[in-house]
């Protein structure tokens, strides 16, 4: 297979698409978001629960279906933001959106390191149609956090 596909579908992405972190319904939650990608029909329902102070992500669960890129991105995001302060999760979300806007160029090393496994999505940004897939979970997180903080 051509290198292009191996660059796009990094092993990290394929692994996360198969064994997905955070997939499952969260019954106690403060914020929920349903996001859909109308072009391919991918959808996710993501729920988030903050600690009593409303500062840290205590639990995160998602259900839905989608392509390997969207599923892996949700799984990686779950790993990155669980137990993290809300502000840190939002910062990581901003980095990830920058990565997607970079059209395949790498971000500076500080931000790439912060993104950990999510940096494997660099190649996704070369395919405009796939950027929405990668962002689906992050859009849901941002939206759910707004709600959760409103209630905290």
């Amino acid at each position: 297979m051509a290198d292009a596909m191996e660059q796009l579908y990094q092993q990290v992405i394929l692994d996360h698409a198969r064994v997905r972190q955070g997939e499952g319904e969260l019954t106690e939650y403060g914020g929920e978001s349903f996001q859909i990608n109308p072009t391919c029909g991918d959808q996710v329902t993501l729920r988030v629960r903050l600690d009593p102070k409303g500062e840290r992500i205590q639990a995160l669960g998602w259900t839905g279906q989608g392509c390997s890129i969207s599923q892996a991105s949700l799984s990686v995001m779950h790993e990155l933001v669980l137990d993290q302060p809300v502000a840190r999760a939002e910062e990581l979300g901003a980095h990830f959106r920058e990565l997607m806007a970079a059209r395949g160029k790498e971000l500076d090393s500080a931000r790439l390191e912060a993104l950990e496994d999510a940096s494997a999505f660099t190649g996704v940004a070369r395919y405009p149609a796939r950027i929405k897939c990668a962002l689906l979970g992050w859009m849901a997180l941002r939206d759910a956090l707004v709600q959760a903080r409103g209630r905290a």
Binding site: A4, C40, C67, S68, I69, Y127, R130
Partner: peptide, 13 residues
């Protein structure tokens, strides 16, 4: 086991 979007991507390649 393969989402249509991924099918299309590899075909496109």
């Amino acid at each position: 086991g393969v989402h249509p979007h991924d099918v299309g991507q590899v075909l496109d390649d």
